[in-house]
Simulated scan of single mutants.
Amino acid sequence: MKGSDIIFPTIVEMFLKDGIKILGEEEEYVVQKFLEQAYVEQPCNEAVVYALIKLYNAKQAFEDAREVGQAFLMMDGYNKEILGELSATFLSLNEMDTYFSLVKQHLDKESQLDDLETSGVEEASNVIPFPKKIKPRRSIANFLEWGTAEQLEFLQQARFHDVEPYLEPFAAFLEDATTSPFVKSMIFELLQEKKVDAAFLVKKVGMEEQVNPSKIPLLTSDPFIEELIESLTRRWEHKNPSFLEQLLVIVQQHLFIMYPFRFPSEHIDLWSEAYSKWLSQMYGEIWRDNAEINHEELMEATQFIERMEQVQQNYLL
């Protein structure tokens, strides 16, 4: 750990283990003040930086999370756990290109250290060969065992190459229920982009199904998703714009986390009601259910949202 060692209070440890939902309003205030003060005193302490970014992400304060994360990376190097938590930050800000650049810098630095340890000084050359194929630092057959930062950087490069040689390790990753749901979504988007016409067993967020990338709509052009976003926008854009902004960020995060899976039903009014109710109650507001929405279906939809949020808050890349 860089910086002085620090012992977190029990309430901070509880937040790191179980997420922000276990905190009351006063407890959340205490956790934030403690972490922000600790950050002022130890801005290069990896545990403090990670915890503060995680808190800001949970509070939807993504610009603050980005500022803390980038400051740490510029001042003190790289940390895989911090990079992992920042992935949720940059995804929410729609700045994944910047995130991939940070990951690439991290991997380049690791590679340079490896080169210093394993090779001597070579003659300088003015010729920089253009790589025609991806040359991962480890065998692609062991993709399942790579760190998430290396997996994401590889997937970004793979967009410019034939993915046929990588289908077998990708398939093994997709069918392992313990691997990162975020990386699985990135893999599936790549398979769609490459128009791969084959069935893959996908296990993630408690769901399991054989899915063919060429047979389902792209996440960015799914008519159901477009309708849901339009419904939420009509409902809240004039009544409470800031609430709508947070709501859309949460919905988009959940959609990406579960991708290529979909909501259990495609009842637009149901999901509009469920997400609106869930976030309102998170703020402690009293909610009156729409009498036109089936009560049992609304409860099931709300429970599904809570499950996706739990995955979003707790998974480590």
Rank of each mutant, 00 (worst) to 15 (best):
F72V: 03
C44D: 08
A58V: 13
L55H: 07
Q70F: 13
M74V: 02
F62Q: 04
A51D: 00
L52V: 08
L73K: 07
V49R: 06
A61K: 13
A71I: 07
A38S: 14
M74W: 08
V40E: 14
E81N: 09
G77C: 11
V49H: 02
V48I: 09
C44K: 11
L35Q: 04
L83H: 14
M74R: 15
E81Q: 08
A38C: 10
K59D: 00
N57R: 04
L35W: 12
L55V: 04
Q37A: 02
V49F: 13
M74H: 12
N57Y: 13
K33H: 15
E81A: 12
K54G: 01
L35C: 13
E67A: 08
Y39L: 15
R66G: 00
K80S: 03
E46Q: 10
N57I: 05
L52H: 00
Y50D: 00
A38I: 10
E46C: 09
A58N: 07
N57F: 10
E67S: 13
Q70A: 11
D64A: 14
L55Y: 07
Q70N: 10
G69M: 13
L83C: 15
K59W: 05
N79V: 06
Y56S: 00
E63I: 11
K54Q: 10
V49D: 00
L83E: 06
Q60M: 05
C44L: 04
K54F: 13
N57D: 04
Q60H: 09
E46M: 10
